[in-house]
Nucleic acid binder design. Sequence first.
DNA 1: GTCTATATCGTGATAGAC
DNA 2: GTCTATCACGATATAGAC
Lengths: 217, 217
Amino acid sequence: MTTTEAPPGSLPGTARAARPQERTAQRRRAILDAATRVFGERGYNNGSLVEIAEIVGITHAGVLHHFGSKEQLLLAVLAHRDEVDIERLATQQRPVGAEFLSHLVATAQANTERSGIVQTYAVLAAESVTGDHPAQEFFRGRFAVLRGDVADALGLTVGAPASDERVVAAASAIIAVMDGLQVQWLLDAETVAMPDTLRFVIDAIVESLRRSVAATP
Amino acid sequence: MTTTEAPPGSLPGTARAARPQERTAQRRRAILDAATRVFGERGYNNGSLVEIAEIVGITHAGVLHHFGSKEQLLLAVLAHRDEVDIERLATQQRPVGAEFLSHLVATAQANTERSGIVQTYAVLAAESVTGDHPAQEFFRGRFAVLRGDVADALGLTVGAPASDERVVAAASAIIAVMDGLQVQWLLDAETVAMPDTLRFVIDAIVESLRRSVAATP
DNA sequence: GTCTATATCGTGATAGAC
DNA sequence: GTCTATCACGATATAGAC
C-alpha cells in the first residue's frame, strides 16, 4: 500500500486535497503498528527507525517527520496501546470484583494468540528499569494503576478494603505472575500454560486472602 | 587499582613472571564485575565495551583481548553468576523441600540489598526473548532447571510427584512471581515488598496444592 | 597484556529539493 | 509529505607497536 490513490468515496478533482489529515492519520497508524512490532522484536534500544520505515515503505526521515524523534515514537506506541485497550473496555462496561479477575485470565488466554503484543510489553517493561529509559515513567504509572485496579477487585471479592496491605500485596503478586509467566512462555510456549496457571494462582490467593481477612479483619 | 605492582608474596626478581595467569585471572574477574554492572544498568544492547573498559581502567581493546567479543563477554558474565551461586550452594548443603522454598524467600530478602544484581538479571532475562539474542538459550535452560528444582521442593512439601502437572504449574508460578515482583520493585521500591509478598504467595500456593492433591492424588 | 590507530558500520537527526 | 544527502557520533572489531 504505497500508492497514492484518493480515499474511497471522495469526488474526482477534490481527491488530493479532500482529506489530507485522514491519509496522514492512516500513515501514522501504519508507523505505530510497525514500531510496535519492531520494538517488540528487538527492544527499544536495538530497534531502528530504518527498519520501521522499511516496513511502512518510506525512509526513516519520513518517520521522523511524523513523530519528531525515536523517543517520542516510543511514547506514542505505548499511548496508542493504552487507547486501544481503553476502547475495548469502554465498549463493554468494565467488569468489577471477581469478574475483573476472570477478565485477567481471559486476557492471558487471548494473549496466547498474539505473542507480538506480549513480547512488546514484556521487553519494554523490563528495559524501562534501566538508566533513564524514556518509558520509565510510563511503566511506573501503569503498574501503580494496575495494582489499584486489581486491589479494588480483590477487596470486593474477599470483603476487605482495597487499601488493606495484604490486599495490595496480593494485587502486586497477581500482576507479577502475569508478567513473569509471559517471559517464561515467550521462551518456552509448550511448557508454560499461562491462563491455567494464572487461574490457579488467583484462586489460591483469593482463598488465602479470604481466610486471612476472616481471621483478622 | 590501575598500577602494576607484583602480587603480594611474590619474590623480587621473579615478580613479573611469577604468576602471570593469576594476574590475568584477576583482570578477567574485574572485567566481569564491571560488565555485570554495565549490562544491568543499560542492558546488553545499550551497554558498551568502552564503558566497561573505563571502569576497569583499560581501553575497550583490552577487554576484547580477554573475551574475544561482546557476545562472549555476556555469556561469561552469566556463567560467572551461576558459578558464584553454585559455590554458595555447595558450601552449605542444598536445602530441600519446604526449606528450599524458605530459601527462595531469604534470597528475595537478600536481593533487596543488591538492586544491581536484580536489575542485571531482570533486564537480561526479558531482553533475551528478542530476535536471536545471545542469552536466549541460557535463560531457556535456566528457567527449565529452576522449574524442576522448585517442582521438586513443592512435590516433597505437599506429597505429590514433581512431575504432576499441577505441581509444575505451581513451580512456574512461583518463579514468575519472583521475576515479576523484581520489575515492579525496581520501578517502585517503596510500594513493593518483595519478600513478604513472595512468602504470602508461596504459602497460598502450597496450601491450595495440598488441598488439590488430597482431593485427587 | 595493553596501548594507539584505524577500519567499517549503523545510528538518530537535520537541511533542503521536489 | 516524502525524498536524497549529509552530518556527527558511537559502536564493535582488527592490526600492529611497545
